[in-house]
Write a protein that binds this DNA or RNA. Structure first.
Length: 497
RNA sequence: GGUCGCGUAGCCGAGUGGCUAGGCACAGCUCUGCAAAAGCUGCUACAGCGGUUCGAAUCCGCUCGCGACCUCCA
């Protein structure tokens, strides 16, 4: 049995995971800025890290999963309009900032639940941790790595880079940052262009503002994650996750701040998921090509040919390794939809199947193959969370399951032990680890009763060779999205589209 | 311009130097009153050029194409 290894962005290689406290794992993931609705691109990290934390739990770790909510708003720390995004949007929509934040937080939670993402253990907000952030900034100033100018506080990147490995995570050289040709407003406050804001002075019109030793203002973007992760996971914790686009400057800055404040780097393992693209371009607000989650689920977007069920989207994301880019297309989503429907039906069938009870496999070759396929699943997860390979193997198993029902595979082909293992393994990986759910809600008893009546009538018609009636029942139901299937044993089943 | 990454069959996509990943689509067959579903079979690709090697999609070099970050961004 292999052990968990995954790619550490910090060292740029796969490493064996060893948690700081045996049996416990701390995971921090950068959550959303709730100044707008989440889109398909946002879904990827949340689903990716949901699987990561599910797998850690599966391995027996007690996981503390912390995923923040950025509700204080980011701003251009390099100057320009040092305005609070949340605040700006609020004025447009004529809402209180906190009302806006609440609205998008609720929408975000709605999406996460539809995706069947488990709630984090702690979901801290930036506005709820202003004191912690101020305190951390004070420490950094005391240690001589930050300076105040006109009520704002900046981190001294050049000084930091002289004593610590600045740029290691994102593969950046400080000199390049210092020589950037960008000429942005507010640069004059900084000693160097690479410096970033820890605290920004708030202009009078700014609604979101807090008192600080440097006057009224609001925290810099990066400091919230440093303050909250260390508060709940410790000054050094196991895993920090987020999208690749956050590597620089956000995560690089987190490392710098925490290293100064605490005297050592904050994180053992960094995990970054790749982007979702659309027509080859990253999906993001700067490209104006986003598909919001509500649009995705309703199909209400010019690009979308249909609505896509959250589980289809989840499956689509997990079919690709998290470190590869994933290109959106209707064709790809539709392929995923058919695939997960077929896989889920095989899974449901498996849970209903009974084994004849023979302890010896009648087909030893197949039995061994099934055991091998099942055992490989852990190896795949242990090798950098390779959900794509896990799904591949589940599809290898599907024909065995369907074959047992269809008669192409003998009922006792597998030993009772292997059969039981197959059942358990399928459940654990598909439901518990990949976090998949059925595409359709549990049918109501009423509907089931009605359909039973129709099925009985159709059976009678077929017996009388009254195919006009039997076909009419089947065709009319199909128009309503209910598909009848004649099983080999003479029974009938139905699925709802 | 700097740094990093990618280019795999009709489409999506996994790939640890040697052994058909997988999915979707398509075609044929089995089953079936007919369908659907399911099963079986087929479709065997690695941007181009060179190099290393007994052997390369996988390592190295060059060329072409694409993208990400360098500015808010998952």
């Amino acid at each position: 049995m292999s052990e968990l290894h995954f790619y550490n962005s910090y060292t740029r290689r796969k490493e064996k995971f060893e948690s700081i406290t045996p049996g416990y794992a701390g995971l921090y993931v950068c959550g959303p800025t709730v100044s707008g609705e989440s889109h398909l691109g946002h879904a990827r990290p949340y689903i990716t890290f949901d699987v990561v934390q599910r797998y850690l739990k599966h391995l027996g770790y007690k996981v503390r999963y912390v995923r923040n909510i950025t509700d204080a708003g980011h701003f251009e720390e390099e100057g320009r309009e040092a305005t609070d995004k949340v605040d700006e949007k609020a004025k447009l929509e004529k809402l209180e900032p906190m009302e806006l934040v609440q609205k998008y937080t609720n929408l975000y939670h709605w999406g996460m639940h539809l995706f069947n993402c488990e709630d984090p253990a702690i979901e801290p907000t930036a506005t709820g941790h202003i004191i912690e952030q101020i305190s951390m900034i004070e420490t950094i100033i005391e240690k001589g790595y930050a300076y105040e100018v006109n009520g704002s506080v900046y981190f001294d990147v050049k000084k930091y880079a002289g004593n610590y490995p600045y740029g290691k995570l994102s593969g950046r050289v400080l000199d390049d940052q210092l020589e950037t040709s960008r000429d942005l407003d507010g640069q004059d406050e900084k000693r160097n262009k690479a410096d970033f804001a820890l605290w920004k002075n708030a202009p009078p019109e700014h609604i979101m503002r807090w008192k600080s030793p440097w006057g009224d203002g609001f925290p810099g973007w990066h400091i919230e994650c440093s303050a909250m992760s260390s508060k709940y996971l410790g000054e050094t914790f196991d895993i920090h996750g987020g999208g690749m686009d956050l590597q620089f400057p956000h995560h690089e800055s987190e490392i710098a701040q925490s290293t100064i404040a605490h005297g050592h780097p904050p994180v053992r393992y960094w995990i970054h998921n790749n982007m979702i693209t659309i027509n080859g371009k990253k999906m993001g607000k700067s490209y104006n090509n986003v598909i919001k989650l509500s649009e995705l689920f309703s199909g209400n977007h010019p690009i979308l040919e249909q609505a896509y069920h959250p589980m289809v989207v989840r499956f689509y994301i997990l079919q690709t390794h998290y470190r590869s880019t994933l290109d959106f297309s209707n064709e790809a989503l539709q392929a995923s939809e058919r695939a997960i429907r077929r896989l889920w039906e095989a899974y449901e069938l498996l849970q209903k199947l009974n084994h004849p009870g023979n302890t010896e496999a009648q087909d030893k070759t197949l039995d061994q193959q099934v055991v091998a396929w099942c055992n490989e699943l852990s190896d795949f997860m242990n090798d950098d969370f390779n959900t794509a390979k896990v799904i591949g193997n589940l599809f290898e198993l599907a024909p065995v399951i369907n074959g047992i029902k269809g008669g192409q595979v003998a009922a006792g082909a597998l030993s009772s032990g292997t059969f039981a293992m197959l059942k358990d393994t399928f459940k654990i990986f598909l439901e518990d680890i990949l976090g998949m759910q059925p595409l359709q809600a549990q049918q109501s008893n009423n509907l089931d009763n009605v359909l039973s009546i129709l099925i009985e009538i159709r059976k009678d018609a077929k017996k009388r060779k009254d195919f006009a009636t039997s076909d009419q029942i089947r065709n009319k139901l199909a128009e309503g999205g209910i598909l009848l299937k004649d099983e080999k044993d003479g029974s009938m089943s139905y699925t709802i589209e």
